[in-house]
Nucleic acid binder design. Structure first.
Length: 809
DNA sequence: TTGCGATCCCTTTTT
DNA sequence: GGGATCGCAA
């Protein structure tokens, strides 16, 4: 459709210039290029969110109906913020009512898919009351599957089997296609598990996170009427963080957008924004070629580059740039800022993780207090303006303890943490069974919680019956009287349990005088009448530990979360309640629809969703969860080999580069203050281990950093410095013309010589005799040694205890 | 059938 | 260090 300008309102100035106000030339270009495919390569901090929101408002200003615009983001929180900002633009600048933004579709891929699958459940081969299984549900189901195939769960660990299944799904290989290409024993077995896992999922009326995407992609691909209906509705598609989309998401986007020839004169209106340097989800199947080959897929695409960084000070940007230059598999783009100056980046070596945590707490306190004297006088930062970033969640614990002890308010961004607590999971499992009686995993979880005399023996019989007949577990419970070997006590327990559930569902009708129609009331009833409340109350009274009281609070919290949801819930925007398909009348009772929507929202929370800038607290989050956020002050911890980069990435160059991008993402979250730290010793699963500073530290542009070694201070240990050698001797690092540190191999000239020139013979206490092939410099120099017996290894000189054999010193 | 304690095992990131 | 599982006692 050709956009039309709305009739100029008399008292308002032309809104279009106002929407472009304050944008750079390329930003404005991206906002205005409304027709046809557009790729925006947006460097970190280059204002891409701004571009997307302005563009949506611009489209609306051009007369595009809001309901025909769809924007896809990575997290619910990003979606919510985007909607807010668009709403503000359309009401402040365009003078449109707030309801305008309601019609917009701003959501995540996963939420969109969940909604489409409910709406088009039948063509997708699902029932609209499907449950979304999270990874622990998946694990229980796949374990059961493995057991029922008579395989050993130790030979076939659920996690890795699921990984293989997930990888297959991400390539859009269904069980059948996977079976067809399985040749060897391993993949044939995986294929068997995949097939029966899939069957069990369908029997349970459940889908996993991958299924949400895969089934949507498949339905859009195979069902023209579904595809056409979507295309009729959405004419303008915007996708954020495009570098982290996987193949299924690519297919969904392409299907929604239409292909290059069949849509409008300029091609499909698909607008994608991303940055290949911030691709950090390769492990989850994200396919960076989606963004790299966008132009091949849409030959008429306009490509717009946003290079100027508006977020960070010069030193922060410079070290980010210098770091990412070490990635070889990358097209370089310059990062630049028009605002020079700023504090240098602090890089600290600490004694251990406790020392690290307390230094960071001190750093935060100093920033919080501010400095009102001297040339660098500044007001203090609020706690909410600071963040601690780490590679793995396990690192958060010590930081948490230290911040608490220091009286610094903090919050951990773990959106799912609340819903993962035992008591909450139990309550939700009851609710899931209420919403979807076929959900056997949830039923299995609560059928005997609190204990009601349905022990392992009885449940085993019920499951056996369910498996044999291919029916959901709940149906077997209802058939209990016909199952041989179920004793009278168990039968009575089954009957009581069935009555319990039926009371909550109004015998499946979700209507009647017994049910209030309120979601919060239902949740409360379930918690009380299931006996969960009494069970935890009894445990609390027995005084085993304090967390039992907390459990009751959490259950109350769940009720209030349901109440909040109920207040926000808009039935008219629930696709399950959309105009019914063709001749079938709409029959979903409102309470059931609301319950489904609630459970869905609970299933799709992301860690980053809980980052609340209103809170006066330091935010703690993983590097992954930090994507898309920014903070005036950032501390990145654990810059150690094996931590960042993570051990799992050490063997592959591709994964190593992803780790480097992850570090890059962390650095570029910082606006003004950045602190990076390495602990010399770190306790990993109870054992204190000597660490090796991360190679990324040695890749930081030294001109913009202040290195300090605190590891010997306040301790009896002799100071050994960043790499165990006096500082003057460790400058094996070379600088290129702009001062960027480049770790280089090939020690010919660059000072890599030292004790072990390339080509010399050495002996290693464990690996034996070998020849040095390469010396890499940096704060912790490494040698690549080709051993006679064990092959080539890369060793850190400080720790390797190499002995030179051919002359030398 | 349940509940508790010892032991074993594993260790990334997340929608 | 912590979660899952297994084995044993009540």
């Amino acid at each position: 459709m050709e956009p039309e300008l709305p009739p100029a309102s008399e008292e308002r100035p032309d809104p279009v210039p106002m929407l472009l106000d304050g944008l750079t030339e390329s930003q404005a270009k991206a906002v205005q290029a409304t027709e046809g495919p557009v790729l925006v390569l947006a460097a970190a901090g280059s204002g891409k969110t701004r571009v997307i929101t302005r563009r949506i408002a611009f489209l609306v200003a051009c007369g595009v109906p809001p309901w025909s615009i769809m924007a896809l983001t990575f997290t619910n929180k990003a979606a919510g913020e985007m909607r807010e900002r668009v709403m503000k633009l359309t009401s402040d600048i365009l003078g449109l009512p707030e309801s305008t933004a309601r019609g917009l579709t701003v959501t995540t891929f996963h939420s969109l898919c969940a909604r489409l699958l409910r709406r088009f459940a039948e063509p997708a081969g699902l029932k609209p009351d499907f449950t979304i299984y999270d990874s622990s549900d998946q694990v229980s189901l796949v374990k059961k599957t493995i057991e029922s195939l008579q395989l050993s769960t130790s030979n076939w660990p659920a996690r890795s089997v699921l990984g293989a299944i997930s990888a297959a799904k991400n390539q859009l290989l269904d069980a059948e296609a996977f079976a067809a290409r399985s040749q060897d024993f391993y993949s044939k077995t995986i294929s068997k598990i995949y097939t029966s896992y899939d069957k069990a999922m369908r029997t349970a009326g459940a889908v996993d996170f991958d299924d949400l995407l895969v089934l949507t992609a498949k339905t859009l691909k195979n069902d023209a009427s579904v595809r056409d209906e979507c295309r009729r509705r959405w004419k303008y598609l915007l996708i954020d963080e495009y570098q982290d989309t996987n193949h299924a998401q690519f297919v969904i986007a392409s299907m929604l957008a239409g292909d290059d020839t069949s849509s409008g004169p300029a091609g499909p209106n698909i607008f994608v924004v991303g940055d290949p340097d911030q691709a950090i989800y390769g492990w989850r199947g994200a396919d960076i070629t989606n963004i790299l080959e966008f132009e091949d897929h849409y030959p008429r695409a306009k490509v717009i580059t946003l290079g100027e960084n508006f977020r960070s000070t010069e030193p922060i940007l410079a070290i980010a740039d210098g770091l990412i230059r070490n990635n070889q598999l990358r097209k370089h783009k310059d990062l630049y800022t028009s605002t020079p100056g700023g504090d240098k980046v602090e890089v600290t070596l600490t004694r251990d993780e406790h020392h690290e945590a307390s230094l960071i707490a001190d750093w935060f306190k100093k920033l919080h207090d501010g400095d009102f004297a001297g040339p660098k006088a500044h007001r203090g930062l609020a706690w909410r303006e600071m963040a601690v970033l780490y590679r793995t969640n396990a690192l958060s614990r010590v930081i948490e303890d230290t911040l608490r002890a220091s009286g610094i308010p903090y919050m951990i961004a773990r959106g799912t943490a609340f819903y993962e607590r035992e008591e909450v999971r139990n309550a939700l499992a009851y609710l899931r069974v209420v919403a979807n009686a076929a959900d056997s995993v949830s039923l299995g979880r609560i059928i005997n919680v609190p204990t009601r005399g349905l022990g392992a023996t009885t449940i085993g019989k019920l499951e056996e019956t369910a498996d044999m007949q291919g029916i959901p577990l709940m149906q077997a419970v209802r058939m209990a009287p016909q199952i041989p070997g179920v004793n009278a006590r168990a039968l009575a327990a089954c009957a009581r349990f069935i009555e319990l559930i039926d009371n909550w569902t109004g015998n499946g009708s979700f209507m009647g005088s017994e049910l209030s129609g309120s979601l919060a009331d239902l949740v409360e009833r379930v918690i009380r009448e299931s006996g969960l409340e009494a069970m935890y109350r009894a445990q609390a009274a027995a005084g085993k530990n304090e967390s039992d009281l907390e459990r009751l609070d959490n259950l109350a919290e769940l009720v209030s979360s349901a109440r909040d949801f109920e207040l926000e819930y808009q039935p008219d925007s629930d696709p399950a309640l959309d105009a019914p398909i063709a001749d079938r009348p709409q029959t979903v009772p409102p309470l059931l629809a609301m319950l489904r929507a609630y459970l869905e929202s609970v299933s799709l929370v992301a860690d980053a969703d809980t980052v609340d800038p209103e809170q006066g607290a330091v935010t703690m989050l993983t590097l992954h969860a930090a994507k898309g956020l920014e903070f005036p002050a950032v501390a990145i911890i654990g810059l150690e080999e094996g931590m960042l980069p993570h051990v799992r990435a050490l063997q592959s160059e591709r994964e190593m580069e992803e780790e480097r991008r992850l570090c890059f993402v962390g650095i570029t979250r910082a606006m003004r203050h950045l602190h990076m730290s390495t602990a010399k010793y770190r306790t990993i699963r109870g054992l204190s281990e000597r660490t090796i500073p991360s190679r990324f530290v040695s890749e930081l542009n030294q001109k913009h950093c202040i290195f300090s070694d605190q590891s010997a201070i306040d301790s009896g240990l002799a100071g050994t410095g960043w790499d165990g050698e006096p500082r003057t001797e460790r400058h094996i690092v070379e600088e290129d013309e702009s001062g960027n540190s480049i770790s280089r191999g090939g020690g010919g000239g660059g000072g890599g010589g030292g004790k072990y020139p390339v080509g010399c013979l050495v002996r290693h206490p464990q690996f034996g005799v070998g020849r040095v092939r390469q010396i890499a410099g940096g704060l912790n120099a490494r040698a690549t040694v080709e051993f006679k017996t064990v092959g080539t290894k890369t060793l850190v000189l400080e720790y390797a205890r190499l002995q030179r054999l051919d002359g030398g010193e």
